[in-house]
């Protein structure tokens, strides 16, 4: 009896600790949510009154909608470009007969290891000469530098785990290397592509540092808008933009978990 009481006590402590950790991790993220409904002209916690006018402002005023659209454009194109480059590089790294593959692998991943601000500075110098500052192309190119390493990390791991006899079997029964890639390899690494794609999208959407160097005066990204808003005029529109961000992220995470569970239950049914 005594010992079982002790175990319960320990368990309670553990649960308390887990609960505190959860609060610690989640609260800063959801603080913006109640603040976005405040009826004041400035950000305040706890919110005073209730209004949706800030939502109306963010969703209709060009001050907000243009950066949101610009950011989404950059993120979408960056994701597609990074996936194509990253997958091709991964195929070469895993399947190719390259000399010094390990060194190349490290080289491809190195942008992750360099502080973004250093990349940003270097890119700024070059892009200024090429007149890419303030352009969509410039932003996509810069974000792709950040995203490709993640794609390579995820896709090479997928390819190493992947059973190569599947590709051999496809070749054996009549598929050329390209058909094998389209019908066998890519469908098999689809989960990895999905994960890598989400990673790219969020990385691009989240970037402030590169954008600070590379956006011009006309087109700015959402993080830049939030940042300058916080600096000069702290209105609840910032909380609204943040809330939209957070809700989108939560939706993506839930969708991912849902896909995973679907997969798992499939395996269980098959087992």
């Amino acid at each position: 009896m005594k010992s079982s009481f002790k175990i319960n006590y320990g368990k309670m402590l553990l649960q308390l600790f887990a609960g505190l950790m959860f609060v610690y991790l989640i609260v800063p993220s959801i603080m913006a949510l109640p603040m976005s409904f405040t009826d004041t002209r400035y950000l305040v916690f706890p919110p005073e009154g209730f209004t949706l006018k800030w939502y109306k402002e963010v969703l209709t005023s060009e001050r907000w909608t243009l950066p949101i659209i610009f950011s989404l454009k950059i993120a979408t194109i960056t994701t597609l470009v990074s996936l194509v480059i990253g997958i091709m590089a991964s195929l070469a790294l895993v399947r190719g007969a390259l000399p010094g593959k390990n060194i190349l692998h490290l080289f491809f991943i190195s942008p992750i290891l360099v502080p973004v601000i250093i990349t940003a500075f270097a890119v700024y110098e070059i892009f200024a000469k090429l007149h890419l500052i303030g352009t969509l192309t410039g932003m996509v190119l810069a974000h792709t530098i950040l995203c490709v390493p993640y794609v390579i990390l995820i896709i090479t791991a997928n390819l190493y785990r992947f059973d190569i006899t599947l590709e051999m079997a496809a070749r054996n029964i009549g598929a050329n290397p390209f058909q094998t890639l389209i019908h066998i390899t890519l469908p098999m690494i689809k989960p990895g592509m999905l994960t890598a794609g989400i990673f790219c999208f969020i990385t691009s959407l989240d970037d402030l540092i590169l954008a600070m160097f590379l956006v011009g005066t006309k087109n700015i990204t959402l993080p830049i808008r939030i940042f300058s808003q916080l600096k000069f005029r702290i209105d609840p529109g910032v909380a609204v933009a943040s809330t939209i961000f957070i809700v989108a992220a939560i939706v993506i995470v839930i969708a991912l978990a849902f896909i995973r569970r679907e997969k798992k239950s499939e395996v269980i049914r098959e087992g």
Partner: peptide, 29 residues
Amino acid sequence: PPEKRNIGMVFQNYALFPHMTIFKNLAFP
């Protein structure tokens, strides 16, 4: 190249394509 040889092969681990139904596996060649 292997795909032009027209020689069938059965692999030790079967190498069936897990993302295709049995019908699609068999129709693939």
